[in-house]
Design a protein around this nucleic acid. Sequence first.
DNA 1: GGAAAGATTTTCT
DNA 2: GAAAATCTTTCCT
Length: 206
Amino acid sequence: MRRSLLAGPVLEVAPRLLGMVLRSTTSEGTVAVRLTEVEAYDGPNDPGSHAYRGQTPRNAVMFGPAGFLYVYFTYGMHFCMNVVAGPEGTPSAVLLRAGEVLEGIELARLRRNQPADRDLARGPARLCVALGIGREGNGADLLAKNSPVELLNGPGFDGEPATGPRVGLREAADRPWRFWIPDDPTVSPYRPHVPKKRAQAAPPRA
DNA sequence: GGAAAGATTTTCT
DNA sequence: GAAAATCTTTCCT
């Protein structure tokens, strides 16, 4: 895996990640997955991106070089992870949404409380749990030899990726920037954005 | 300083 | 299918 392969335009990098392998090693052991579903986020040109409104402490990693891990916390309980793409200073990233566990499946089952195997890493937060990735994974260099989280070439994927709109986004919901391996059972189901029920308007005062 | 929404998952009906 | 769980970040007053 060369960093230059990740330093191109994010819409080219994202489909290229399909079939690649992400391997995470902690004190508990090693789990590796073959990536089956990803989404591209194109920084300043993309209202759906965390970097759309410029750099903040949270998204700072996205502004650095390609090949680093951007992990964020959401919904008060979940982590999701991205591979930073594009030239340095271009805050683009690829959300890793799902994978097939190739290695360490027993540890993944333990972490995930024994669901069906196809569900072990089927969804971005589930993928993080299966691999044991949390806050501390933010900023990890995926291409360093001694890194606890590494990105490997793996089997790759030869065919034509399926594409469609990204999952659960309110902004830029029309952009078909989700890529997945067709007919793979570990790909997560599509779900459009659902507006949260708004708090009731203030009651009329007496 | 406060409110609202969020690149989700699980559980219950 | 609907709703809860739960907290960080961002945006508005």
